Computed example of a mutant assay.
Amino acid sequence: MERKQRRGKPISASELGRFLYCERAWWYGVQGEESSHLEALERGAQRHEAFAGEVRLAERVRAGLRVLIWLVLAAIVLAAIGLATGLL
């Protein structure tokens, strides 16, 4: 078993979460031990990736709707100006 080097390596949020969840499991990971729950970890990673895709899609939809709202507001303003000046 090869021991991982920690010196100078920043601590990630997921590593901090593992430590807070279970200090012993975190320590085993630092020592290079493999988890016995690799299947569950893989499923969790896939679920997180799927959720991240849904979030990215929602952000794109939100941005598109924002543009649509601005276009509708511009059309209303232009229509109001047209009505006020007798162009429509």
Rank of each mutant, 00 (worst) to 15 (best):
R18Q: 13
V30G: 00
G29W: 05
H37S: 12
V30D: 04
K4N: 15
H37L: 05
S12W: 01
A25S: 08
Q31C: 06
E15I: 00
R18N: 10
K4C: 06
E23K: 15
G17Y: 05
G17L: 13
R43C: 00
A40T: 10
G44I: 01
E15D: 12
Q31L: 05
W27S: 00
R18F: 02
K9L: 08
G32L: 10
A40S: 14
K9Q: 06
K4S: 09
E15S: 01
G17W: 07
Q5R: 03
E33Y: 08
W27C: 01
A25F: 07
F19Q: 01
R6W: 10
A13E: 09
G32S: 08
A25C: 14
R7Y: 13
Q31E: 13
R24K: 12
A40G: 11
R18W: 03
R6I: 13
A13S: 11
R24F: 04
H37V: 04
H37P: 00
G29Y: 02
W26Y: 15
E39I: 02
S12H: 05
E15V: 01
R18A: 11
E23A: 15
W27I: 07
E39Q: 10
L16N: 06
Q31H: 07
E42D: 10
G8C: 12
R43N: 09
K4Q: 13
A13H: 15
E33Q: 11
R18T: 03
E23T: 06
A25T: 06
E33P: 00
K4E: 10
G44K: 03
W26R: 03
R43E: 14
C22Y: 02
L41Q: 11
E23H: 09
R7L: 07
L16I: 02
W27A: 03
G17N: 11
Y28V: 00
S14R: 10
F19G: 00
E33V: 12
L20H: 07
L41S: 04
L20R: 09
